[in-house]
């Protein structure tokens, strides 16, 4: 096998995680937002912290009004970390706390982060959140915390991880059973909750995966792709 063939073979084995969000299905209900909070130990906001722009939502629902009453439309767009191949947040981190993993995740190493907030400043999608304070969960709300996900202390930046803990769990389990991870086996919390089944997650390197097929749709588009960020979240545009 030539070096090039080996390289291609490795590329096939190494997944490249991506997501499609079908805006023709999305109803803007917010189930994904709540599911993300429940899965990822997001700090609770208070009315005061929310008023100062310090509420955390790793995934948010943007709203775009088009037209004027009575011919007006409201288009919802869930926005989360786009896990860009050319992520603007990565080269500006002085301590390499944010970097690209081999399987294409834009990762954030909490232990390494020193809180410069350069990454948040450089992210065109505004999906990074800085912990100005230690998070607080009044007892016994803390019993709900997911032990698979680190609690982020003050001074640390955080954002969507594509539910990396679920990816790792599925890959470990597949390895234990000596089989590949099946398409659809990994679902981030937002995708699993979505009642309209608008969110699909999977391996973009697998041409047969559902996410790859959807990413090839004529409706596929990427958010702010003119910036050259090469996002791995692909939106399927709404048809009305």
């Amino acid at each position: 096998m030539s070096t090039q063939e080996e390289s291609q073979s490795d590329a096939k084995k190494t997944p490249r995680w991506g997501m499609t969000i079908d805006l023709d299905r999305c109803t803007g209900c917010g189930a994904c937002v709540a599911a993300c909070h429940a899965e990822n130990n997001l700090p609770l906001s208070t009315p005061e912290s929310a008023a100062t722009g310090r509420a955390f939502h790793w995934i948010r629902i943007d709203r775009y009004y088009e037209g004027e009453f009575p011919d007006i439309k409201l288009k919802y767009m869930p926005v989360l970390c786009q896990h860009c191949d050319q992520a603007p947040c990565e080269p500006v981190c002085p301590v390499y706390a944010t970097y690209q993993t081999p399987d294409g995740l834009n990762a954030q190493v909490y232990n390494r982060c020193v809180g410069t907030r350069y990454c948040g400043n450089n992210c065109p999608y505004s999906v990074r959140f800085f912990n100005w304070f230690d998070p607080v969960w009044p007892e016994p709300l803390d019993l709900q915390l997911n032990p698979d996900v680190s609690i982020r202390p003050d001074g640390v930046m955080e954002k969507c991880t594509f539910c990396v803990q679920r990816i790792k769990r599925a890959r470990l389990e597949a390895a234990r059973e000596s089989r590949p991870v099946a398409d659809g086996e990994i679902q981030p919390a937002c995708a699993q909750a979505c009642p309209a089944e608008a969110i699909v997650f999977g391996d973009l390197n697998d041409a047969d995966s559902k996410v790859s097929r959807l990413a090839g749709s004529a409706r596929a588009t990427r958010l702010l792709e003119e910036l050259g960020t090469e996002p791995k979240v692909i939106y399927l545009s709404r048809l009305s």
């Binding site: 209900c29 917010g30 009642p195």
Partner: peptide
């Protein structure tokens, strides 16, 4: 699937 209230 589950809605936001069910999640909470």
């Amino acid at each position: 699937r589950l809605c936001a209230r069910g999640q909470a």
